[in-house]
Simulated assay, not measured.
Amino acid sequence: MKKRKLDIVVISDVHLGTQACHADELLTYLSSVQPKMLVLNGDILEVQRHKETFFPPIHSKVLRKIITLSMKGTEVYYITGNHDDTMRRFSGVALGNLKIVDKLVLNLNGKKTWFFHGDIFDISIKNTKWLTKLGGYGYVLLFAANKTFNWSLKKIGREKYSLSKKIRDNTHKSLQYTANFERSVAEVAIENDYDYVVCGHIHQPKKIVYETKKGACTYLNSGDWVENLTALEYSLKRWKVYRYNHDKLSPFFMDEELKNMNIQDLIDSIADKAEQREREGEPPLS
């Protein structure tokens, strides 16, 4: 079957390495689309749980699929989140079309678009208004505060703090937190002149326009692949929320190329590509 061609696909909160992850469905979805860009908006890997050695073959196939997409020309951005925050030490590193970043800003048909995971709002969800006064420095300061706070907790032997995780099971608090999160993100985005802001983290897929006295922006959340099985798709200058459970065609897709491919094959292919670029006088992969 012909794959759907899209400009951008955004997925987040996959949590590979946990039993809650719907890796089969995600692999099927990724096999059904052909995006020019794939944004992995945080919590793709459950790095904190890797010591439990739960990483079945289907989870590895998802990673292989992502790398295969990058090798075939898809530009892949891995934005770090709180469950894979150890990746933040590699922020700025690129391997061909695969780049690791903490945030991403794109100009999409004249619309300024801000991508980040969202966990930085956990410790300051009630106090983000002052950040809007600081313009572009607000995000940097909030990111630094979040990192320092969790570092301090680790030093005294406590788990990293995630407000959204603690209140998710409480329906009333969860609804209030979600509303506060969305509004706070949108206000900071508007203050910094973003037309779109794209998050994950709270496992609540959504597309909504927020307006203040200073302007308006569209808030987008890619949801997750634990409960909702959702993604964001950008095509023909429009964003939409994709829902796997509403897609009658996607389950028919599955790439044969993944069946016999292993990680070493992918590494060797990337190395061969780098050598070829060097022989042809092209700049090295950075």
Results as ranks from 00 to 15, higher is better:
residue 151 W to D: 12
residue 248 K to W: 02
residue 149 F to P: 06
residue 156 I to R: 14
residue 254 M to W: 09
residue 148 T to E: 14
residue 269 S to R: 13
residue 236 L to A: 15
residue 260 N to M: 03
residue 190 I to P: 02
residue 228 N to S: 13
residue 218 T to I: 10
residue 258 L to M: 12
residue 232 L to Q: 03
residue 174 S to Q: 12
residue 260 N to W: 01
residue 145 A to P: 00
residue 211 E to L: 03
residue 164 S to K: 09
residue 142 L to N: 10
residue 203 H to W: 05
residue 186 A to W: 02
residue 186 A to K: 02
residue 250 S to G: 08
residue 191 E to A: 15
residue 181 F to Y: 14
residue 160 K to E: 11
residue 265 D to Q: 05
residue 168 R to Y: 12
residue 180 N to H: 11
residue 252 F to Y: 14
residue 193 D to E: 13
residue 231 A to E: 03
residue 155 K to A: 12
residue 146 N to P: 00
residue 206 K to G: 04
residue 250 S to V: 15
residue 169 D to E: 11
residue 173 K to C: 02
residue 214 K to S: 14
residue 241 V to W: 00
residue 204 Q to L: 11
residue 264 Q to L: 12
residue 141 L to E: 10
residue 212 T to E: 08
residue 210 Y to Q: 01
residue 223 G to A: 10
residue 191 E to F: 05
residue 193 D to C: 10
residue 206 K to M: 12
residue 189 A to R: 03
residue 169 D to R: 13
residue 182 E to Y: 00
residue 254 M to E: 09
residue 148 T to R: 14
residue 153 L to E: 02
residue 203 H to Y: 09
residue 205 P to L: 06
residue 267 I to A: 14
residue 142 L to K: 09
residue 212 T to A: 13
residue 214 K to H: 12
residue 228 N to V: 09
residue 229 L to C: 14
residue 165 K to V: 05
residue 153 L to N: 10
residue 183 R to Q: 13
residue 252 F to W: 10
residue 259 K to M: 10
residue 202 I to A: 01
residue 157 G to P: 02
residue 242 Y to V: 08
residue 243 R to C: 12
residue 230 T to E: 03
residue 202 I to R: 02
residue 154 K to G: 04
residue 241 V to D: 02
residue 223 G to H: 03
residue 154 K to L: 09
residue 141 L to K: 07
residue 205 P to M: 03
residue 237 K to Y: 07
residue 166 K to M: 09
residue 142 L to Y: 03
residue 231 A to K: 04
residue 187 E to Q: 10
residue 195 D to E: 11
residue 257 E to F: 00
residue 187 E to L: 04
residue 228 N to P: 01
residue 232 L to G: 06
residue 201 H to P: 01
residue 174 S to V: 01
residue 200 G to S: 05
residue 237 K to T: 13
residue 224 D to P: 08
residue 264 Q to H: 09
residue 230 T to K: 04
residue 250 S to P: 00
residue 171 T to K: 15
residue 192 N to T: 02
residue 201 H to A: 04
residue 185 V to N: 03
residue 141 L to R: 04
residue 191 E to Q: 10
residue 194 Y to A: 02
residue 200 G to H: 03
residue 162 S to R: 05
residue 211 E to S: 14
residue 193 D to V: 05
residue 196 Y to M: 05
residue 161 Y to E: 01
residue 238 R to Q: 15
residue 207 K to H: 07
residue 261 M to H: 00
residue 174 S to N: 15
residue 227 E to R: 13
residue 182 E to D: 08
residue 155 K to T: 08
residue 169 D to H: 12
residue 252 F to M: 08
residue 171 T to S: 14
residue 166 K to C: 00
residue 258 L to C: 05
residue 255 D to G: 10
residue 195 D to A: 08
residue 173 K to A: 11
residue 144 A to F: 08
residue 163 L to M: 13
residue 143 F to D: 13
residue 174 S to W: 13
residue 180 N to K: 13
residue 141 L to C: 01
residue 201 H to E: 10
residue 172 H to I: 14
residue 175 L to Q: 14
residue 179 A to H: 09
